[in-house]
């Protein structure tokens, strides 16, 4: 790129002065690359029947959405768990921010809704997509794991006494106490 652009600027400045007199503001055109990629992810979602996606802010606001998971096997079978997704304009350079809205007794989800899932943090790569994340979340319910604990107590019970863990999960999902913590009904 080697040219004298100042003459171009000069011409443009003159044009701009004319244009400003002629009419007011033109339309605004801003769409981030992240938004485009997210649209692609969304339009290509291939979810199992047990997962559902919804857009609380309507069809033109896809960067924030909700996913509901209804596991049909494992400890959490029959429960309904909602997650919020927040997608940044530089997605997929950065992973979506995911939180669990349903208070759940789970070794990898804390009571604030933080989720310990490797692909949301240390193992995120731009080739992954929303579909992968939703499958990853689903997997957390069929295969909770005590090695990546966010809820320390739940993880310890799962490790030492799976039978008791199962009854704790049932009690929590039915809307009851586990230890000092009251869980809302989600069946």
């Amino acid at each position: 790129m080697t040219r004298d652009m100042i003459r171009l600027f000069k011409v443009k400045e003159k044009q701009r002065e004319l244009a400003e007199n002629a009419n007011g503001a033109s339309h605004v055109k801003k769409q981030s690359a992240g938004e485009l990629r997210l649209h692609k992810d969304i339009s290509e979602l291939n979810l199992p029947k047990s997962c559902n996606i919804s857009f609380p802010n309507g069809k033109d606001e896809l960067m924030n959405f909700e996913v509901t998971i209804r596991p049909d096997e494992g400890f959490y079978s029959g429960g309904t768990f909602s997650f919020t997704f927040q997608v940044a304009p530089i997605y997929p350079h950065e992973a979506p921010k995911v939180k669990c809205k349903t208070k759940v007794y789970h070794p990898n989800i804390d009571l604030e809704g933080n989720v310990c899932l490797n692909i949301l943090r240390e193992d995120w790569k731009p080739v992954l997509n929303i579909n992968t994340v939703i499958y990853g979340l689903y997997h957390l319910f069929t295969e909770p794991n005590y090695e990546d604990p966010l809820n320390h107590d739940a993880a310890a019970v799962l490790r030492d006494n799976p039978k008791m863990f199962e009854s704790n999960v049932r009690r929590a999902m039915a809307g009851g106490y586990v230890g000092q913590t009251l869980f809302p009904r989600c069946i």
Partner: peptide, 30 residues
């Protein structure tokens, strides 16, 4: 130097910026 239409733009080469290191949440918690 980015001259749109002539050189790559920021998005053409966004891979030049390594994603931020993120620690696993369970490491932070435990």
């Amino acid at each position: 130097v980015i001259v749109p239409g002539v050189t790559p733009c920021f998005e053409c080469t966004i891979w030049l910026f390594p994603p931020q290191v993120k620690f696993p949440l369970c490491t932070l918690a435990e």
